[in-house]
Design a binder for these strands. Structure first.
Lengths: 214, 214
DNA sequence: GTCTATAGAATGATAGAC
DNA sequence: GTCTATCATTCTATAGAC
């Protein structure tokens, strides 16, 4: 994503701060209650703004929601550059899985909102699935197929490998309440996140016959 | 789950049919729209019943919802008996993964409702996570640890292996809209389900160093 | 740009006839 | 057990003063 241009003046800077505040708050409320369960009033209260101000920046609830969903989607797309810039499957997948795990930890609300959206049939962002995500997936499948042709990994169905990586990494964000409960009702600490990342990476690399050091 | 006793008379049989109809319809509507997004009116319309009848069988919307969630949870618990009745990790895990994949195909709505519930912090069924699921998990972790002690599989963190199996298998139900879109907007056919199951099983078994035939 | 007040629509739940 | 009619509440969105 390109860096935002500098704010032209003070008013513009304030506007941007308010926008960011609303988006961050909305992300959390949508994640916790779903699209319908989240109310503009609740988002306004949490952001300490009058409800009418939300409608000033985002005409409708759906506009606000869509921007929240687009944000996490773009973050994930950026995390996949290792597929293009890295030669070995070991390095590419290790980097990709690590980044996806980091995003699950740093953007748990965004991940939950996305999961919610897809679970309900992606009514708002269906076009993204059909265009951007489809192209993205085809490209990466080609990369994985090249690895197999070169004998770098076992012959597996690349599609299901991608699904497994998505499912497993996002599980730590989307199902965090379940994971916390099974972790003595404590948030995962640094060591546990490192452990999870290491374990997931190891099983997947070994699972497709890619040695880790190589 | 114990088999239901025979209906005592005609009225009792009709009552049971109506209950089953409401539960099945509610499962789908809750899956498609979330707890708040699903309306009693929509469920009633789909089941071709007056809305008041729903409130007759289920006093509140939450009562109905809770029964839907409990059902898929019990189905998953039953699928795990292979851990207790099977000696080798290969056979136990192959069976467990296959059953979980079959449930993802046969009960996609239930799986989605569960995912939704956990994503939103499990407000309704938090007690299940703390009691039944915690005990279930501890028991299975012990089984996996025994496999490692006996040198049947590599040393990995059993907890993350379980999470990976849950995440990957349920992904095919919860993210089915994404998967269908990436599959030329076609539902997965028998061959593709078999393929997915085979691929997931292979990667996980190889990932933990368990040979498939053994 | 910010805020108060409110219109207009939809929802969960129930009363009460049959 | 089934159904119609309705109440009380809550929500999105906007009008209009500042």
């Amino acid at each position: 994503m390109p860096a935002l241009p500098k704010p032209a003046n003070r008013r513009e800077g304030l506007r941007r701060e308010t926008l960011a505040l609303i988006l961050a708050t909305a992300e959390r409320i949508f994640a916790e209650h779903g699209f319908k369960g989240a109310t503009m009033q609740a988002i306004a209260d949490e952001a300490r703004l009058p409800k009418a101000n939300l409608h000033y920046y985002f005409p409708t609830k759906q506009d606000l929601y869509r921007q929240v969903v687009e944000r996490i989607f773009n973050i994930w797309l950026d995390a996949a550059e290792s597929f293009d810039t890295t030669a070995s499957p070991q390095e590419a997948l290790t980097t990709y899985i690590r980044k996806k795990m980091e995003i699950s930890r740093s953007h748990p609300y965004g991940s939950k909102v996305w999961a919610n959206e897809v679970i309900h049939g992606a009514p708002i962002i269906h076009d993204y699935l059909e265009t951007t995500l489809t192209e993205w997936t085809e490209t990466r499948i080609k990369v994985i197929e090249r690895w197999m042709d070169e004998g770098l990994i076992d012959r597996i169905n690349p599609r299901h490998l991608l699904y497994m990586i998505w499912a497993t990494t996002q599980h730590y964000a989307d199902f965090s309440h379940q994971i916390v409960t099974l972790n003595d009702s404590k948030e995962m600490n640094d060591q546990q996140w490192a452990d999870a990342t290491e374990c997931v990476t190891r099983i997947i690399l070994a699972g497709i016959g890619a040695k880790r050091g190589g």
